[in-house]
Design a protein around this nucleic acid. Sequence first.
DNA 1: CAGCGCTATGACATCGTTCCCACATCGTAG
DNA 2: CTACGATGTGGGAACGATGTCATAGCGCTG
Lengths: 342, 342
Amino acid sequence: MNTHSNTLRRATIKEVAEAAGVSRSTASRALSGTGYVAENVRSRVRQAAKELGYVVDATARSLKQQSSRLIGVLVSDLRNAFYSAFAAGAAHACRSEGYTMVLLDDRGHGDEETSAAETFVALRVAGVVGTPVSATLSEYLGRHRIPLVEADRRFSEASVSAVVVDNRAAARATTEHLLALGHRRIALLLDETAWTTGRERAAGYADALRAAGHDVDPTLTVPTGWDVDAASAASRTLLQRDDAPTAVFAANNLLAEGAWRAAADLGISIPDQLSLVAFDDAPWMSMVKPGITAVSQDAEAVGAAAVASLIAELRGTQRAPRTVTIPTRMIHRGSTAIATRR
Amino acid sequence: MNTHSNTLRRATIKEVAEAAGVSRSTASRALSGTGYVAENVRSRVRQAAKELGYVVDATARSLKQQSSRLIGVLVSDLRNAFYSAFAAGAAHACRSEGYTMVLLDDRGHGDEETSAAETFVALRVAGVVGTPVSATLSEYLGRHRIPLVEADRRFSEASVSAVVVDNRAAARATTEHLLALGHRRIALLLDETAWTTGRERAAGYADALRAAGHDVDPTLTVPTGWDVDAASAASRTLLQRDDAPTAVFAANNLLAEGAWRAAADLGISIPDQLSLVAFDDAPWMSMVKPGITAVSQDAEAVGAAAVASLIAELRGTQRAPRTVTIPTRMIHRGSTAIATRR
DNA sequence: CAGCGCTATGACATCGTTCCCACATCGTAG
DNA sequence: CTACGATGTGGGAACGATGTCATAGCGCTG
């Protein structure tokens, strides 16, 4: 390349202007493409910029323009495939719209969420998308007038846009599938009942039972912790009860893994002795035998849609809080069968 | 909160200073903690900042200080568990050292890598860690004097620091394990031979064979593409040969998945008819039956170490390019057995 | 040829922060 | 009593980019 790397300091627009024999203003106009610039001057400035290896200083530009091309993305746990797929979708959407993603991982802690919000404010991001763990995210950002799009679950339905899946309908359909197979004692493994995801999945489950004329047995709704081990332990207890369920509906991929491991440990055969359905598909579910029937939610699409929605708001294309629902798809594999006595 | 959100504009340090009855300089000193400030003044300023909901403008600070607290992180594909774990480790390390991560995903494309580098330069990041796909990353950043730490694989050994695993030794140990079980026709599935990871894994494989007095059959080293389907197709062909291998060593988790699916499709039983070992562990490997024996590399640790190494360089604690090697661990499950004729 | 509109350019202020100085006060050593 | 270091504070100049505004040349119309 013909880049002059002999200077220690980075090239500024002033140097580009001098090299091209014009003023800073003209150089700025030539590079950004706004305002009048003669064609030959423009190419002269472009050439000078290229030769000097000039790259605009985004910090200076942001300061002057009082807005940045950064989008803050907050997820709960990057190691979880759901969130990493979400982040991948968000990253791609940001990039294709000319924004840069600042990704933070709050590890599910409320206090980290607050400090993440502070970081976003300090960076003067144009907007934020995130999977919140409380309403503080939207409150804090709202106070600083930074647009937010909540994803996966909602905490501030009235005031901010969101991208979610229809948890209730999907959970209802799943439960109906199990009911149709003759199951009556269907357990529901839940992670977090304070979140809309958990609440709505439970509601859909209850809808299906009630619509079929059955009562909801509260002892069959089991809130476990957040990790596979906790889910596995809870499942063990559940499956060893005298009135053990004949089917388990796990509300996320981690819970499904826990339930699956518990069944394997106890020598309970799927689907002969136990039917298992998961909310949220994962790669392993198509590799084990039998495959696990699951409600697949396209986390990448959720991330991309959340960013798209945010950018639409930034552009002023769309004003009022809006909710986008990403469709789910039920993938039938072999983990459910007609209910039998155990 | 007692935050005055009645102002439309965000509070600046000037407003904080006025509210506390001091000058901007003093306010700045009080908040940043550098230089002389009387204790009562300091707390008065802090209080004023709190009441106004003041958050420092990182763009203005970066501009003035000519350095930011941002670290650029570049990965190849966030949807791949290896990279998302890497990003999770990097995110955590950044945060705990007071840096903020800017995460970019080049989807394995060289041209996206260049534009990612440009983005990092524009943002004036303090440094970059990444899993490069070519030497252009280090060249570009080097030209702009931005420190880089290469992770997972290397392209610029002489000039930049790196965090890797000992691919050669691990591949050799894996191959030796298969040799010890009596396997002689051992296939090696590779992704990318232009990368140090692929080259070194191949070298370790060859080391083991040669040390045991065997020739390396070039037809048994199969470079497949990047996705599961390609690996599966290549494996199919391989396993249907007259002189099919009795063992397959897959150089990453995607290749292992492809090989596993091919074997399942062809009705080839693991480990009776085929032994399978993977480089890079994945969740499904402990869930299928039998479990897949794998070389586990702690991608999270690699990400964290890369950031730690970068920050050490930024602090000047450590100068010369340095290579950190993260240990691998071989996890024996049930996918290998004594070689038998097929 | 006066007047107008359009193209084209540069001077200069500005964004919010930091930090180098100059300056002020006070206590104390010489 | 003066000089000096230590402590504390404020004025003002940067950092690099943008954008407003003033200015000027030019072609055209009436």
